[in-house]
Amino acid sequence: MIYVFALFLLTLLVITAVAIVRTTNLFVAVMLTSIFSLLMAANFFILDAADVALTEAAVGAGVTTVIFLSALALAGDVEQPRLGSRLLPLGTVGVLAVLIIYATFDKPRLGDPDAPVHQHVAPWYLEKTPEYMDIPNVVTAVLSSFRGYDTLGEVFVVFAACIGVLFILGVRPPGPAAELPAEPSGLRHHLIPQVVGRLLVPFIVLFGLYVQFHGEYGPGGGFQAGAIIATGVILYALLEGEAEALRAVPRSVLLGLVVGGALLFGAVGVVCMLMGGAFLDYSVLAADPVFGQQMGIIVIEAGVGMAVCGALLSIFHAFAAREGRP
């Protein structure tokens, strides 16, 4: 039954993608992108990837949309109609699509337990997680311990992207006009959204913290929690105006979160080395290797959460501050 639902969702996904490309109003395109992400999250959930679905829903449907909208406010929202023939690109993608579909017939079918993907390290991870870390969520175990190097790299990519955005857009608008506008922005004058939003913000942040610290036991972890907390603060910024949000969470705190989170992750690795283990081998952190692993996982997940939350919020504020400039 759920597979019929999946067929329906996948078809909707294709329709949404085509609609995104066809529309010339970029606001419509961004809103459809949000729907696309939500459909994608539902598909991920059907395919047993609860952690990924949570991430896609928080990041794709939430943060990405806000960042796109703030970029649209700066860059204009109307796309000019295309000049010239569409035949060449259409032909190219048509031929490529047929080739890829032809190639998929060599792939193992969905859910085939004998597929090559399921033969190498994956069963080992599933088997060894209870023994080495004794935490229920294998995804978190693989993410933070077995493949800690990978995650460290990804965190530094997020860090670098955040620094890049800040360099390109400027940490703060230059010139004497840098004073924050006296007129409060945001939804100050709209009573109902403001009341409801104010009611929701603490719960969103609380849920983010739950996802952060429950990540070892259920779907969740630093990446999701960082995105969810960032969404909560962005909602606050939309309701009360950007200046108010910066008063609550100042830029210095945000930068501290980004740098501190990335450094915390790296520092755990170095501490492991100092205590006689390999880089990011948490077993040496405590007398009991299993407890050491658990401790390491909790600490680096906190680092990931800090870095992601700080990076996404810094990016949002970089775009939002640019809007105040003439």
Binding site: V52, V59, I67, V165, I168, L169, V308, A311, A318
Partner: peptide
């Protein structure tokens, strides 16, 4: 259990994806 490994790869890729997208949008601005 379903395979945890692709999930881990994509989980991190989503967050990296939004950061790099923001970088691209900053350049567009």
């Amino acid at each position: 259990f379903s395979n945890p490994l692709p999930q881990v790869l994509i989980l991190t890729a989503i967050v990296v994806g939004v950061s790099t997208l923001a970088l691209g949008l900053a350049i567009v601005v």
